[in-house]
Design a protein around this nucleic acid. Sequence first.
DNA 1: TCATGTGAAGACATTCACAGCA
DNA 2: TGCTGTGAATGTCTTCACATGA
Lengths: 209, 209
Amino acid sequence: MEHHLISEKTVERLILYRRILLTIDPEKQKNIVSHQLALLTGVKSPQVRRDLMVIGYSGSPARGYDISSLIESIGHFIDAPVKQGIALAGVGNIGRAIIDYFKGRRPKLDISAIFDIDPEKINRVLHGCRCYHIDQMEAIIRAGKIHMGIITVPADSAQSVAEHMIRAGVTGILNYAPVKLVHPENIHVENRDITLVIEKVAYFSRQVR
Amino acid sequence: MEHHLISEKTVERLILYRRILLTIDPEKQKNIVSHQLALLTGVKSPQVRRDLMVIGYSGSPARGYDISSLIESIGHFIDAPVKQGIALAGVGNIGRAIIDYFKGRRPKLDISAIFDIDPEKINRVLHGCRCYHIDQMEAIIRAGKIHMGIITVPADSAQSVAEHMIRAGVTGILNYAPVKLVHPENIHVENRDITLVIEKVAYFSRQVR
DNA sequence: TCATGTGAAGACATTCACAGCA
DNA sequence: TGCTGTGAATGTCTTCACATGA
């Protein structure tokens, strides 16, 4: 069960497999073969089998994989043992969109504290979350034993927000600000710059003409 | 100039390099060495040199790379020769966030048509974009010679929206809906499922403790 | 001396192809 | 027969390391 040996790609696919498996009606279908899961996820079937091998999950040559136990096994690997809180800084458009979209979607994950500097927003409940001033962030993250942060503040304050988060104990950051965060290498940072991905798709949309 | 030989990773980094280079004050600094650009972008310096090699850009062993001509060369590779329109379907939270965030950020790219099914939104100008009913999408995409689409509709209508876009001539799709789109393989599809990336970062945030 | 450009090596990821089993 | 599980082969991407040149 050496979690940290699993590659990022494999983790992403495992999450994807689970998402797809959860959409299958357990009344209608109890088992799935690698080829079908591959089709549903856009992955090749040997890749599916390899990924499941990585988490030590075994199927049957006769029936393929048992859907419900596979969902459970993936959860056992991916999910936190107890509910995990997430801090979100920056309640602008993107921040609100994420809160709204994500709220209640995963049982083991919860955006439990949100922060901004706008006095209009402080102490208001936005999308079901109480909003605090960013000055209180470190204390609240520490008190809530929060280990993950989402940064949706403007570019010029992203670095400082990240540093506060890290100092408070955050070890994983999802960054939507268009800056390269400087951080210790043991902190996992995932950048999701919207402009960048739009430019990328625009580029490739022209290569396939 | 064989564009389609460039890997996705390289394209992403080129876009990133440009974004960082654009933040450097041309009065203060005219040249940059690979090591510095590497530091600023979180890439290793041989990677930077290789990426620039791929687009055929040469620096000087004495002075490094000329910033303004490098920005231009990357633009020459990445940007559309003329302004490129983008269609966005689904004016919910995420859709609005993207429109707001992206508007005016890249001179050669423009979210030029937005679509929804909500009668409240149709024919209204939202965030500077006129919103049309999704039934008109194919015609408008065709008329506007639009080749890129952004999907921010709910999961259950994403596939159908994608098919309409593709039929109208779209060759690149940025998909925020949590579904695997089925599409011809010459269509470039980039998935940005928000739940998935949050789960991923949550997972890795626990591996670094 | 120090940075570029790049062949060669290395690390990683994917896919093949088939043994083994129900 | 048709699936899984997996060693081996094949990509693909990254990094090394150094010849070259200013």
